[in-house]
Design a protein around this nucleic acid. Structure first.
Length: 276
DNA sequence: TCTAAAATAT
DNA sequence: CATATTTTAG
């Protein structure tokens, strides 16, 4: 993928350009750093596949521009907290905005509440960024849900067990709802032959997604291996009382009762579901 | 412009 | 907590 650096870079600077002071300051930080074309594209692995496999290093999914943008948002949020007076405020409100929602005249902007980040970090009025269920997050979710079983797999419990910083009960509930629909759908279509796991899985995926990174499909990790490392949902949990690991975690010894196996987790980040 | 993901409302 | 509905990203 070639949507590498330029995009991220441009997106980052654009909003800043409206403010000379901050722009200058940021450019200062960049002194001495390699220029864009000296950098290895984010999508490119730093080590060769051979080397990776020789040392059993799993290749991290390549970062996309989206990842970068998210990181940028986090960074900006941090700045906002450190220096609320900064005009960087304008940045964070990102408002990617679907083209239709903004008009050239732009008086819709008259509503200052669009940027209601008046708020400092202490004010919880700050809107939390939309959570994206990455394959990693989803995998963790599935592992937890699977181990809990249908009865116990409820949002609050799942959330706690996942131990993911910044993850809310609502996030989980919403995802769980979708996941259940997905399961139901799969039940109805016992197409789950040995052959289906991968190709079928893809078939459901929107083209845009499946055509995107098609990296090798690793087998799902053995079950009882659930690393309980706290794992930030969005880079920046801000405030969020997620000090550390939850008390003692029972090693997930139980059996994965229901074959919530689209084990994939690995690649197909998204499970698709469709209304009947 | 349409679909699916995520959020939010009931 | 579940489900229905709405909003938003892609």
């Amino acid at each position: 993928m070639r949507e590498d650096f330029d995009n991220g870079d441009r997106d980052f600077k654009d909003p800043l350009s409206s403010n000379g002071g901050d722009l200058d300051r940021i450019l200062e930080w960049e002194i001495g750093l390699p220029s864009s074309d000296e950098l290895i594209p984010l999508s490119q692995s730093l080590i060769s596949p051979e080397l990776a496999s020789a040392f059993s290093i799993k290749r991290e999914p390549p970062l996309s521009v989206i990842d970068v943008q998210r990181a940028i948002q986090d960074t900006v949020s941090t700045f906002r907290c450190l220096d609320p007076s900064s005009n960087l405020l304008l940045l964070s409100a990102d408002e990617p905005m679907t083209s239709n929602s903004r008009k050239e005249g732009g008086e819709e902007e008259s509503d200052p509440s669009t940027f209601r980040l008046d708020g400092s970090c202490d004010g919880r009025a700050v809107k939390r960024p939309r959570l994206v269920w990455t394959p990693q997050l989803h995998r963790r979710f599935v592992e937890v849900v699977t181990h809990l079983g249908e009865k116990r797999a409820v949002p609050k419990t799942i959330m706690k067990l996942m131990n993911v910083g910044g993850l809310t009960r609502e996030n989980v509930a919403s995802h769980l709802q979708k996941y259940r629909l997905y399961l139901k759908r799969m039940q109805g279509t016992p197409n789950e032959g040995p052959l289906s796991s991968v190709s079928d899985h893809h078939r459901f995926l929107p083209a845009s997604r499946s055509s995107r990174n098609i990296r090798e499909l690793l087998p799902p990790p053995a079950f009882p291996s659930l690393p309980m490392i706290p794992f930030p949902a969005f880079g920046l949990p801000h405030h969020q009382e997620y000090g550390g690991l939850m008390g003692s975690h029972q090693p997930y010894g139980a059996s994965p009762e229901q074959g919530a196996n689209w084990s994939g987790g690995n690649k197909g980040s998204i499970f698709s579901y469709r209304l009947p």
